[in-house]
Simulated assay, not measured.
Amino acid sequence: MTKNCLKLKSILAMAGCLAMMSTFTGCHDDNKNKEGESTILKPIAENITGKWNLATSYAKKDGKWVESPIPEGQGQTTYTIRTDGTVVSAVMAADGFTTLKGGEWKTDEEAGTLTLATMTVNILSLDATSFEMGDYGKLTDTETGETLEGEFKWRLTRMDETVKTPAEKLVGKWAFKGTYEKKNGEWKEYNQYEPDEAWVEYREDGTGTNYYKVGNKEYKEGGGWSMNNTTGQIRTTKEGSEEAKVAPPITFEDDNTYSTAYTECYDPATGQIVATGEFKDVYVRSQE
């Protein structure tokens, strides 16, 4: 993403990828105590906080739970359930782009349920490293549009909350530091056409804002975003539009600095190409 091309993308549905059950193979049944009953650590609210990966989906068929493992790298979903009552989901679509969405969570200890944003499920088991949640109803596969009706449950495994994907690392406000041009194999400052002020903010609810100012011209635009954690590309849409654009890949130089490389340098005041070569824009994490 450069300072010239930010278009932000609309958010995806939080629970969209829970309906990835096109084939069913194998069976699974654990989290049982010696009496064969599922273990549920209580209180649920104190034991369910942390970061969780959606590992496996199940559907009940002929009275038995039938497993449908989620292929690695396809439809990966994580939930970060925080002690402050907020939850952030990260949902990877089939094309590799991950969208974040934020909301609130709560438990009903007596009923044994968990509400994640607008989705309420039954807690079927819960221990220190995994839990299962289930529901009865209709689910729609977001890829095929197929509606499934029946009993479903999902198994989640605990993750290291300190390990973040590039999309999660991108959350925050980033200030434009400068443009650099590669000359004789070295990056040199190239701030001939830099704006007076520029920054971009990526929020964990999947929305963001891009801002820059040149002279008496001020530009500010909002919308939604998603990121391909493998390629580093950011896909964005402008607020009120579904038209998506994919910006050049970004590279994290460290946790608080990223850059975007490109070959055509624009004058932000006129929008005209003023130079070609090897360029990069550098952004640093803002403390605001």
Rank of each mutant, 00 (worst) to 15 (best):
residue 13 A to C: 11
residue 189 E to P: 15
residue 210 N to C: 04
residue 185 G to D: 07
residue 11 I to A: 14
residue 119 M to H: 07
residue 225 W to C: 02
residue 189 E to H: 04
residue 211 Y to H: 14
residue 4 N to H: 11
residue 258 Y to C: 02
residue 164 K to Q: 13
residue 80 T to V: 10
residue 200 V to F: 00
residue 197 E to K: 14
residue 247 A to G: 12
residue 282 V to K: 05
residue 252 F to L: 09
residue 65 W to Q: 11
residue 114 L to N: 00
residue 129 T to A: 15
residue 139 L to I: 11
residue 253 E to L: 14
residue 240 G to Q: 15
residue 243 E to P: 02
residue 49 T to G: 04
residue 245 K to C: 08
residue 33 N to A: 11
residue 135 D to R: 09
residue 13 A to R: 05
residue 213 K to R: 13
residue 119 M to S: 04
residue 281 D to P: 01
residue 206 G to L: 02
residue 92 M to H: 00
residue 10 S to F: 12
residue 84 D to G: 04
residue 186 E to K: 13
residue 141 D to L: 05
residue 162 T to V: 09
residue 63 G to R: 07
residue 90 A to S: 13
residue 130 S to T: 06
residue 17 C to G: 12
residue 26 G to V: 07
residue 169 K to C: 05
residue 88 V to A: 03
residue 276 T to K: 04
residue 33 N to E: 11
residue 143 E to F: 09
residue 273 I to E: 11
residue 269 A to M: 13
residue 42 K to H: 07
residue 270 T to V: 05
residue 30 D to E: 07
residue 44 I to R: 09
residue 256 N to Y: 10
residue 146 E to W: 06
residue 143 E to K: 08
residue 20 M to A: 15
residue 257 T to L: 09
residue 68 S to C: 13
residue 39 T to M: 09
residue 82 R to C: 05
residue 253 E to A: 08
residue 279 F to Q: 00
residue 106 K to N: 12
residue 205 D to V: 00
residue 229 N to K: 02
residue 27 C to Q: 10
residue 133 M to W: 03
residue 46 E to L: 08
residue 165 T to G: 04
residue 181 E to L: 06
residue 82 R to E: 03
residue 28 H to W: 15
residue 216 N to F: 12
residue 118 T to D: 15
residue 124 L to Q: 08
residue 7 K to Y: 13
residue 113 T to S: 02
residue 252 F to W: 10
residue 85 G to K: 13
residue 146 E to V: 14
residue 57 S to T: 07
residue 18 L to N: 01
residue 183 K to F: 00
residue 178 G to C: 14
residue 235 R to T: 00
residue 19 A to P: 05
residue 167 A to T: 11
residue 43 P to S: 09
residue 48 I to P: 01
residue 120 T to L: 08
residue 173 K to G: 11
residue 112 G to H: 03
residue 140 T to S: 06
residue 197 E to D: 14
residue 74 Q to A: 05
residue 6 L to N: 06
residue 8 L to Q: 04
residue 95 D to P: 10
residue 264 E to Q: 09
residue 70 I to N: 01
residue 29 D to A: 11
residue 29 D to W: 13
residue 280 K to M: 03
residue 79 Y to L: 11
residue 111 A to M: 04
residue 89 S to I: 12
residue 178 G to P: 08
residue 58 Y to W: 10
residue 211 Y to V: 04
residue 161 E to V: 15
residue 131 F to I: 13
residue 190 Y to C: 10
residue 87 V to G: 01
residue 265 C to N: 05
residue 68 S to H: 11
residue 5 C to W: 03
residue 255 D to S: 15
residue 63 G to C: 10
residue 160 D to H: 10
residue 165 T to Q: 12
residue 95 D to M: 03
residue 163 V to Y: 06
residue 223 G to C: 07
residue 162 T to E: 12
residue 177 K to C: 10
